[in-house]
């Protein structure tokens, strides 16, 4: 703080602080407070807002508990997001390791470019691409049948598998780059030393690379998990009645049910439980908040 003061002088410092405070209050704190306030009031017609019935209540939160369908969709969303996170990690770890420790300096920019180019396209369009690929008569089914791996085309769309595949693809970058950064900072001599002492590759990853990359893994997993749990486009496009996402229900409360109070309560529960889930996982894997901040 004193460093900023010394460098920019009192006037500029005051302006910077004021702008930061404005940003935090107006764009982060205030909307959240409003949402919490919303979620704690009953949904009333405009004429009765502010009237005697407009009292604070936890009724909106209890709804989720009592509605078994919503509850199971909620749990399914958390579980599927965890699965998406795990699968994304499984796909990205080898890629990130290859880029960080194996790829030649000449091929690395090409690899990064190839990874990034698809993400210049809008998320919705990319999801549509998967819609085409996964379609009942789409190329994936044709290829699988053609190779003789399956007899009948599989109905990917509308099933949880389709949603999960689509999400893994959409969030790859959010996993690859934190992993890449973390693994890249590992001194290659560490890997060679372990190898020289007789270690096989599995043990090298388990004992040397993964422990070193843990903060990056945590960042990648948190981002992927949060994005997956809060995703709307992918489940809406690739999912079906059997694979509904909790965000769809929140959406419905807001824009179809017109019950913002109920929607706010659901959104808030999702936020709190996601954060809780992440903190629990961080404790389980012994990652500290300071590690993640690095």
């Amino acid at each position: 703080m004193s460093e900023v003061l010394r460098r920019y002088g009192p006037v500029l410092t005051a302006v910077i602080v004021a702008l930061c405070a404005f940003w935090v209050v107006m764009l982060v704190v205030l909307p959240q407070l409003l949402m919490i306030d919303f979620s704690l009031r009953p949904s009333l017609p405009p004429s009765r807002v502010g009237g005697p019935d407009d009292v604070y209540t936890v009724q909106n939160y209890v709804t989720l508990w009592n509605n078994t369908i919503h509850r199971s969709i909620f749990l399914q969303t958390i579980w599927a997001s965890a699965l998406v996170t795990a699968l994304t990690f499984a796909v990205c770890y080898p890629v990130a390791y290859f880029m960080a420790q194996v790829a030649k300096p000449k091929t690395l920019p090409l690899m990064i470019l190839l990874l990034v180019i698809p993400f210049w396209i809008n998320e919705l369009l990319r999801t549509f691409a998967w819609y085409i690929i996964l379609a009942f008569n789409g190329p994936l089914n044709q290829a699988l049948v053609g190779l003789g791996l399956i007899d009948q085309p599989i109905r990917f769309l509308g099933s949880p598998a389709g949603v999960i595949v689509g999400m893994v693809y959409v969030y790859i970058l959010f996993m690859v780059f934190p992993l890449y950064n973390a693994i890249e900072s590992l001194d290659r001599n560490q890997i060679e030393a372990a190898r020289d002492l007789g270690s096989g590759w599995l043990r090298i990853h388990r004992r040397i690379v993964i422990p070193h990359a843990k903060p990056g893994i945590a960042v990648g997993c948190i981002m992927t998990f949060m994005l997956a749990a809060g995703s709307y486009a992918v489940p809406a496009l690739l999912g079906g009645p059997s694979s509904r996402w909790f965000t769809e229900i929140i959406y419905n409360w807001f824009f179809e049910g017109g019950n913002w109070n109920q929607g706010a309560a659901y959104a808030f529960i999702l936020l709190v439980l996601c954060v809780g889930f992440i903190l629990g996982m961080m404790r389980l894997f012994k990652v500290g908040l300071t590690d993640v901040a690095k």
């Binding site: 001599n189 030393a193 372990a194 190898r195 020289d196 002492l197 270690s199 096989g200 070193h212």
Partner: peptide, 29 residues
């Protein structure tokens, strides 16, 4: 491969494993 040779290399920068204790380092092999 290096993991199958009867040699042990001490690296220019030592390459000790910083996340392990001294005993774990020595005991790794």
């Amino acid at each position: 491969g290096p993991n199958k040779r009867p040699t042990a290399l001490i690296f220019q920068n030592l390459a000790l494993f910083p996340l392990m204790t001294v005993a774990e380092n020595i005991g790794f092999g």
